[in-house]
Nucleic acid binder design. Structure first.
Lengths: 297, 297
DNA sequence: GATCTCCATGAAGGCAACCTACATGGTCGC
DNA sequence: GCGACCATGTAGGTTGCCTTCATGGAGATC
């Protein structure tokens, strides 16, 4: 019953193949295969079984992988307690973020971290809501969002904390008849052409709510992921679009107008694996992140 | 942050010296000393400091030793879950017991375990109540007793479970004027000479309660640990003595008569370290032990 | 106060275990 | 059927853990 073996089973369950685990841990598949055999010999149970071209955990393997979470979390708490006793948190925290939330939060975070012994390694990726959870494998904290609940789809077993709530506004080109409105209702906007996003991507849910609220079908002239591109298209007058309030730069070419009558807020959520979040440095960064988020409104 | 190091610190805190830990784990003090230096180098903190001719844990060492308890308990739960899934519990359970309770419980336990894949390694020792807790270092289960509370003195941090409650009776030689009584009150017995036990040992508390209830001072003609020896002295008419009801063999030479008016019951308690008790085999033995204890009354 | 014992520690060497490199066999996709 | 990917087995190198032996300090004993 060695921790190394538990961890391997956990990683294998999460990454799927020995090759993936090997790549993530800078070892060879052969080494891991030998570890598995050693573990099975020591425990006297089959932990994995071949399935098509890969492996699958047996019942015993699942039990040990579950246990690995507990054991590694306990271990991380010890590390955290030790770090806490040593005073200032220190170390490197790997953050992955969806770009818009990163744009809103990271400048504030980095300025708060200046002068501390904490450093950040940042990566951004534009994914569907449900895909952020998997990125916690490679990052200590993943900044995702959720349009409906407070925990994004797919992140059920993970640590999660809402660091901000951000209204999603309608971007209206300057000169558009609606540009002077203080608030927009669903029936105000369903007649216009829309710059939309692919299904499952940020704000698609809100577009569907607009359709549900009015019974109309929106005219989607394009489906675009990148908000910067959306902004430039709106500025050019191509149509309306949804844009997050805090992470969209002010512009003379369009105005952001609040939506009323449909729920148009996203929760910006920090996700992480329990053992990673237990690290003192990660906890400290998380607190700063929440503080930055609180100031956004 | 390796488990081996956490465990070493925990053991060191509990056993006191590197030599003791080395003996218990079949290694040399030198090996452990090197492990400590390695751990300190990896963590960048002093974990132990020299004190007189031995070592003492630093604050960081205490933190890690505390954490070791959690981590090892989590690890033991994994092992237990795995064992549970494999069906029948199996393995060897090391039991240490105070002799009288062992005499009452072990025959029943062993007969219940016959035919299973569980085996018992048994050791007995006659100690003061507070010393049993320390024996959990060397045994999976320690059967101790407590005259006042339900958890023996010194066993506060340990797992404990009351497996039986046993009345302590007065052994009266046949032919003694009191031998015909159905129940004895404190004032009935304080005038007689007593076969007592050393202070802190089984039943000493009850003798003190007799004195407190009557204001008298008992005449202690001897102080003896071993109940078999006590029995033979009572049988010979040397005096009265306290003997546990279930673990004293019937004899024509004396009678056991219940005491009234003072609390004269002991809790027979199974003690164990959390990580040991989490083992499936240990849990199974513990259940059987409780079942045997329940039948005693 | 000299000696003995017990404690921790250090250097040197044996040995076991882990890992890499390379080769093999099976399964899926094109 | 060819290539890609996956797991696995063998051989060999390297790391690191442990033992043995020797040293030094602190109490205990007489």
């Amino acid at each position: 019953m060695e921790i190394r073996h538990l961890e391997l089973l956990r990683d294998l369950r999460e990454r799927g193949t020995l090759g993936a685990v090997a790549a993530a841990t800078y070892r060879t598949p052969s080494a891991l295969s030998q570890q598995l055999r050693t573990a099975e010999r020591e425990l006297g149970v089959a932990l994995v079984e071949p399935v098509s071209r890969g492996l699958r955990l047996t019942w015993a393997g699942e039990v040990l992988a579950d246990g690995a979470d507990d054991v590694l979390a306990a271990l991380a708490r010890v590390q955290s307690a030790l770090d806490a006793g040593r005073g200032e948190p220190a170390g490197t925290v790997r953050i992955g973020t969806l770009p818009s939330a990163g744009a809103a939060l990271m400048p504030g975070l980095l300025s708060r971290l200046a002068g501390t012994r904490l450093s950040i390694v940042l990566e951004d990726f534009d994914l569907a809501e449900a895909e952020y959870a998997a990125r916690t494998l490679d990052h200590d904290l993943v900044i995702a969002h959720s349009l409906s609940a407070d925990v994004p789809a797919g992140a059920e077993g993970l640590f999660s904390r809402v660091v901000a709530r951000e209204p999603i506004d309608v971007a209206v080109p300057t000169g558009h008849p609606l540009a002077g409105a203080a608030v927009l209702r669903p029936e105000d906007v369903v007649g216009d052409p829309w710059i939309a996003v692919p299904r499952g991507f940020p704000f698609a849910t809100i577009l569907e709510r607009l359709e549900a609220a009015t019974g109309a079908t929106l005219e989607r002239i394009v489906e675009i992921r990148d908000n910067r591109l959306v902004e430039s298209l709106v500025a050019q007058g191509a149509g309306l679009a949804l844009l997050p309030r805090f992470s969209t730069p002010p512009s003379g070419a369009y105005r952001l107008i609040p939506l009323a009558g449909v729920r148009a807020t996203r929760a910006i959520v920090a996700l992480g694996r329990r053992d990673r979040v237990a690290r003192h440095a990660v906890g400290a960064v998380l607190d700063q992140l929440a503080a930055v988020g609180e100031l956004l409104g």
